[in-house]
Amino acid sequence: MSHNESLYAVDVADLTVAYRDKPVLWDIDMQVPTGVLMAIIGPNGAGKTTLIKSILGLIKPAAGQVLIFGRPYDQQRHEVGYVPQRGSVDWDFPTSVLDVVMMGRYGALGWIRRPGSKERQKALEALNKVGMADFAGRQISQLSGGQQQRVFLARALVQEASVYFMDEPFQGVDAKTERAIIVILQELRSSGKTVVVVHHDLQTIPEYFDWVTLLNVRRIASGPVAEVFTEDNLRSAYGGLVAFKSQAGTVNSNNMK
């Protein structure tokens, strides 16, 4: 791929988003280098989902600009994969698991063209990869929360994007599914993809991610986990609610469930 224009997979500059006069994101600058697995963390209402949605053009910002590999998002759609929050869709919708995964190919197909055997094949491969091959024909309402999340991940995989945005992919999944998902995300990173994940569990940050952005309406810090995942930054993002035990190498968060 020739992304010579920019070193960054995602380059957010001076992004401000407001609902009426209330700023949700205030003057955000964030550069995500190509090939990192990055967590976006911050307390509830920090604007994590809003940041992702603004990057994807789903929310119109009041100011600022977003570049994906040096170009505006609408020129780079095919480079971007998106996993919305599991709860944002109606899982009683009359459709099958395989059908949902194939939706990830719709962008490459464009308007009107129907998915065919090639799309089917890719969807089955992705389902296999997330351990859901046996569920291809199932109606989606029969899935558990963890299975729904795997289906969404499979749908993102078939997008064959260069940079992925995932909104809380670990929400409400059991430990086994969480492991399975993080393994796939790390595989994506090793194959040169950039993965941006809205995350909630501070304890797993150093283990899972190599890059992190702390957010609380403003950008508190953004950079390698080793450098910016510090007590000071966490305190700025979460207020005084975070107990940080740096010597033990673990982090506890009192305001998380």
Partner: peptide
């Protein structure tokens, strides 16, 4: 209908 967010992000 199923996922308006993904539809919008894909340019539909």
């Amino acid at each position: 209908t199923f996922d308006a967010g993904l539809a919008a992000s894909l340019g539909f």
